[in-house]
């Protein structure tokens, strides 16, 4: 047999015409086999997530209820701090999203349109910053924030989140702005529009998908963060869901129903966003979010 790669190159150049769009498909024969295979794989992969939901609906020990019940939910909202944690998480997360997007959008524009030494240095710094461990920044920030009473304070945590989302958020905005042709702006400049004007009226107006992906990324990072919250938030009244769930779990190891109920509450917002906006769900963004953690 001849070496396949050589003959392949030949073929490529000739450009064999074919209508087959999914060439690896061995016909319908294996279709149901693969179907069953993927069902089994998905089933196994999802066991932990299904377990969370099922356990939250299972009556806890000593309960008179049988079958599925929502009594854990009633109990969680009255007897645990879940409502406080949820409010705190939402506050911190939304504040982070707004501030990060507002700061990152103009910076991303500079990164996208500018072209000089300063901008390429800035680009390199952003790349380095997003690959550094958060632990390194958290310790000095803790010491610094302690002096200003920003420890054990939702405002302080929000600032840290903005800092840790900013580099990737800027990068994401810049990547999106790259896809908007500069010719549109040039036409506006000819007509005497300022850079600020062309940025807000042309670039931003056409960047909703980019803004949404960036916002989703910031939302997930702030919502899911455990490390920063565990260092900065100690009192029960300022805890966010991740630290709230973790401390509640450590105190109530055996009460799986209640623990998993809190877990479901925490899981709903990201899953909802994913279900509704998965078009804008950017791998890069989420990727970047984990880069820090």
């Amino acid at each position: 047999m001849t070496t396949p790669d050589v003959s392949l190159t030949g073929r490529l150049e000739v450009g064999v015409n074919t209508r087959a769009r999914k060439p690896m498909v061995p016909g319908a024969r294996g279709k149901w086999g693969r179907f069953i295979g993927i069902i089994v794989i998905t089933g196994i992969v999802l066991i932990p997530i299904v377990a969370v939901v099922v356990l939250s609906l299972t009556p806890s020990l000593g309960s008179s209820a049988t079958g599925f019940t929502t009594e854990n939910y009633a109990k969680a909202f009255t007897e645990t701090g879940v409502l406080t944690w949820l409010t705190n998480s939402l506050t911190v997360t939304l504040a982070t999203v707004v501030v990060a997007v507002v700061v990152a959008a103009p910076a991303g524009y500079v990164l996208s349109r500018g072209r000089n030494r300063f901008v390429s240095g800035y680009s390199l710094v952003l790349f380095i910053v997003q690959s550094l461990p958060v632990v390194t920044a958290v310790i000095p920030l803790f010491i610094l924030f302690a002096q200003f009473g920003l420890v054990d304070n939702l405002f302080g945590v929000t600032i840290v989140y903005v800092g840790s989302t900013l580099s990737v958020a800027t990068w994401m905005m810049a990547a999106y702005f790259d896809s908007i042709p500069i010719t549109l702006e040039e036409a506006a400049w000819m007509d005497g529009t300022s850079v600020l004007g062309s940025f807000t009226r042309i670039v931003l107006r056409n960047s909703l998908p980019g803004i949404l992906s960036t916002a989703i990324f910031c939302f997930l990072l702030a919502w899911n963060d455990y490390l920063i919250a565990s260092v900065f938030l100690k009192s029960d009244t300022v805890k966010t869901l991740p630290v709230g769930l973790q401390s509640f779990f450590q105190q109530n190891q055996a009460n799986w129903g209640l623990v998993m109920t809190v877990a479901v509450v925490m899981m709903i917002p990201p899953v909802l966003i994913f279900a509704l906006l998965n078009r804008y769900f950017s791998v890069g963004g989420i990727g970047g979010s984990l880069a820090g953690r």
Binding site: V52, W223, Y226, L245, A263, I286
Partner: peptide, 14 residues
């Protein structure tokens, strides 16, 4: 994609 979407605090508990 769910294992990636679900918060790590939640999946660690699971």
């Amino acid at each position: 994609l769910l294992p990636w979407v679900v918060p790590i605090v939640v999946s660690a508990t699971a």
